[in-house]
Amino acid sequence: MRTDILMDDSFAVGGFTSGREGIWTRESADMPPTSDYAELSAALGTTPEKMVRPYQANGQRAAIVVPRHGGSGIIKDNELTRTDGLVTAHRGLALTVIAADCAPVYLADRKAGVIGLLHCGRQAAAGELLRNGIGCMESLGASKAHITMTVGHHICGSCYEVGEEVYSEFAESFSAEELSCIFTISEGRFFLSLFQALRYKGLELGIAPENISQWGECTCHCTDFYSYRRGDRGKQDLAFLMMR
Rank of each mutant, 00 (worst) to 15 (best):
I134Y: 01
F170K: 03
S139E: 12
L203P: 13
S173Q: 15
A112I: 00
Q123G: 04
G231A: 14
T219R: 09
F183S: 11
Q123P: 04
P209G: 10
A208W: 09
P104E: 10
F195V: 11
V166T: 11
C120L: 00
A171F: 12
A108K: 00
E172V: 13
C102H: 02
Y228H: 15
F174Y: 15
G141V: 00
I207S: 02
I182Q: 10
A208F: 09
G188S: 13
H221L: 13
H153T: 03
Y106P: 00
S143G: 12
M137D: 00
F195I: 09
L107K: 08
H221R: 13
E169Q: 15
F190G: 09
L205F: 05
R229F: 14
G141T: 03
G157Y: 08
R229K: 11
A142W: 01
T150S: 10
L194K: 07
G127S: 07
T184R: 15
I147C: 00
I98K: 09
V166R: 06
E217M: 14
Y167F: 14
Y160N: 07
F174A: 12
L179H: 10
C120Y: 01
E177I: 06
S193L: 08
T219L: 08
H221F: 01
E164R: 15
V151E: 03
A103E: 08
G135V: 03
S143V: 03
G152H: 06
H154C: 11
F225N: 07
A208C: 12
L194G: 07
R189Y: 06
I98W: 00
G116M: 06
Y160K: 01
A124W: 00
S173Y: 13
S186K: 15
E128K: 14
F195Y: 14
L129A: 08
S143Q: 07
F195A: 12
V105W: 02
E178L: 14
R131H: 05
A126M: 06
F170D: 10
C181V: 01
G157F: 08
F190H: 14
S139L: 11
S186G: 11
E138M: 15
F191Y: 15
S175H: 13
I207H: 07
R230P: 02
F174S: 14
T150W: 02
C156F: 06
T223H: 14
Y160R: 00
S173N: 12
C220N: 01
V166Y: 04
D101K: 01
G141R: 00
A171G: 11
L130S: 07
H146D: 03
I207F: 04
A108S: 07
R131G: 04
G133D: 10
G121C: 04
Q214T: 09
F174N: 11
M137V: 05
Y200G: 09
A197D: 09
E161T: 08
G113S: 02
A208V: 06
E169N: 11
A124E: 07
G121W: 01
E172F: 01
H153M: 02
H154S: 13
K201D: 08
C136Y: 00
L117E: 10
G121D: 11
P104C: 06
E138A: 04
A125L: 15
V162F: 01
L130R: 04
H119C: 01
F191P: 03
L198F: 13
E169K: 15
L140H: 00
A99D: 05
V166N: 08
T223W: 05
T96A: 13
E172S: 05
Y167E: 07
V162Y: 05
A125F: 05
R189I: 06
V105H: 02
